[in-house]
Design a protein around this nucleic acid. Structure first.
Length: 474
RNA sequence: GGCCACGUGGCGGAGUGGUUACGCAGCGGUCUGCAAAACCGUUUACCCCGGUUCAAUUCCGGGCGUGGCCUCCA
């Protein structure tokens, strides 16, 4: 099966050919740990987790290296630290902020069903690699020192701006920001800058006396280099990172290593809005993953995210979460306690391999959950044997699991939602027994009253020929 | 202002040069003491204007609208 990926650099979808099928290498820009992750941060984490899982499926779990960095040195971190811990020394305050945020990020991401990346390097632990790159760039004539800063000279790289599809002249024409006087060109960007007193500081490269700290872009070039080499297969992140962050990474890495590309496929997830509006703190619609997880299982959030193709803009709504929860409930009810099939459904996999067409793949999951209807369409596909029964269940489970969904059994799912709703199951069972006794005596008004009471508790009954079952109302 | 995307039925959301996406909701039915669930059936679509074509929602051009980026925001 051929995997096709859309590459932002060439603006085309093309067949994925790894540099080394024995070690497929992917880098994704991770969080800056100054504040709790919001739902917009969750999108690339989930999207590239799906890609990670797909690559592991296609190339083998031991043949994929996924690196997602942690940015733990940054102006915003400094600002937040000073604000939250005004009485602590800045370095200590920074450590408190980054530790707390980092811990929460990992809890959140795990709850969303994401596998840990192969490596999660921290910027502050790779200062040496950054300095090596900076020295090389200076030696190559791509960077220069000015007033204790090291700047990358964009004019030294002929195709700077290729990823963002912008020429330097266009950028300068559209620039809205005051240009530092020491820059040779307005678009030159910082590789290293002097630290103010109290800020995190390391001995500077290039013979600069004042201790300093790295610019934002250099860390990704340094860490991808260390863990993935001078060139690698896939570089991902949010579309807002295309410029300047990824453009600058490309400039740094290619000029440092004299390589034709930094990564062969540049993948960018689309932006996210909340209930039709841009998410911002001032709008009051800032949704953190942590808050969301109080009301919704991580699996629901994950499915809600994957209902939209990763490159499309997504509007994050409660209604979308409700629909996702409903779909999962139905799927769990369908799969019961079966063990997954050895392989996922081929049609499902083909959708994923078409540039991660998760909405189409999800449509296929719905089909599998309705084997009597879809049976004809499935003839000839991999779902051989008894499509109306356990085979469909096993393929549904196996397919969904390749994207990190439906990993529980129906009873585990049920138990989790009961626990989340903090329902007293003993009380529910005794009320159901009382209702069924009333029904037996044809005392339907009493039976309906009990059903109403249960409904107020958030419990919905289902009378089947084998007895009464119940579940949590959504 | 410059650059880059996007615009599909009540809602979400794929896809396609001519043939049912799919899901939710709605409507009708089966089942049920009544419901719920499940199952069966079913209504509604491709922003506007030109062009190319035997044929365009799908390709091209223009317009309108929405969003993103333009030095640290996924």
């Amino acid at each position: 099966m051929e995997l096709k990926l859309y590459d932002t650099l060439t603006r085309e979808k093309r067949a994925f050919k790894p540099l080394d099928p024995g070690n497929v290498r992917m880098y994704v820009c991770g969080p800056t740990v100054y504040d709790f992750a919001h739902i917009g941060n969750a999108r690339p984490v989930i999207v590239f987790d799906v890609l990670f899982r797909l690559l592991r499926h296609l190339y083998g779990a031991d043949h994929v290296t996924y690196v997602r960095n942690i940015t733990d040195v940054d102006d915003k971190i400094n600002a937040r630290a000073a604000e939250e811990y005004p009485n602590s020394p800045l370095n200590e305050a920074i450590r408190k902020v980054t530790e707390k945020t980092d811990k929460r990020f990992h809890e959140d991401v795990a709850a969303l069903g994401c596998l840990p990346p192969t490596h999660e390097p921290r910027a502050t632990e790779h200062i040496a690699e950054m300095k090596t790159l900076i020295e090389r760039l200076i030696a190559n004539g791509n960077a220069y020192v000015a007033e204790d800063n090291v700047l990358f000279s964009v004019r030294s790289m002929p195709d700077y701006g290729k990823l963002a599809k912008r020429s330097l002249d266009e950028m300068i024409a559209g620039a809205r920001v005051e240009v530092a006087p020491y820059k040779r060109d307005p678009m030159d960007f910082i590789l290293w800058k002097p630290s103010k007193s109290g800020e995190p500081a390391w001995p500077s490269p290039a013979g600069i006396k004042t201790p300093g700290r790295p610019g934002w872009h250099i860390e990704c070039s340094a860490m991808s280099w260390k863990y993935l080499g001078e060139m690698f297969d896939i570089h991902g992140g949010g579309i807002d990172l295309v410029f300047p962050h990824h453009e600058d990474e490309i400039a740094q890495s290619r000029c440092a290593f004299h390589t034709p590309v930094m990564a062969n496929y540049w993948m960018h997830n689309g932006f996210l809005q909340v209930e039709g509006a841009k998410m911002s703190k001032s709008e009051g619609n800032f949704v953190t993953i942590h808050e969301l997880l109080k009301d919704w299982p991580g699996e629901v959030i994950r499915l809600a995210m994957l209902r939209t193709h990763y490159r499309q803009p997504i509007d994050w709504t409660i209604r979308g979460l409700e629909e996702s929860a409903k779909a999962l409930d139905a799927w769990y009810a369908f799969i019961g306690e079966v063990t997954p099939a050895e392989q996922p459904d081929q049609t499902f996999l083909e959708s994923l391999c078409d540039d991660l067409n998760s909405p189409q793949a999800i449509a296929r999951l719905h089909q599998m959950a309705h084997p009597p209807v879809a049976g004809l369409a499935m003839a000839g596909a991999t779902m051989s044997g008894d499509r109306t029964g356990v085979e469909a269940q096993r393929y549904l489970k196996s397919s969904a699991m390749t994207v990190g969904l439906l990993w529980k059994t129906a009873s585990q799912h049920q138990a989790a939602s009961i626990a989340a709703a903090s329902i007293d199951t003993v009380a529910v069972e005794s009320l159901i027994a009382a209702r069924n006794a009333a029904r037996k005596e044809k005392n339907f008004s009493a039976a309906d009253r009990i059903r109403g009471d249960l409904e107020k508790m958030g419990v919905v009954l289902k009378d089947t020929k084998d007895g009464t079952t119940w579940e949590i109302a959504r």
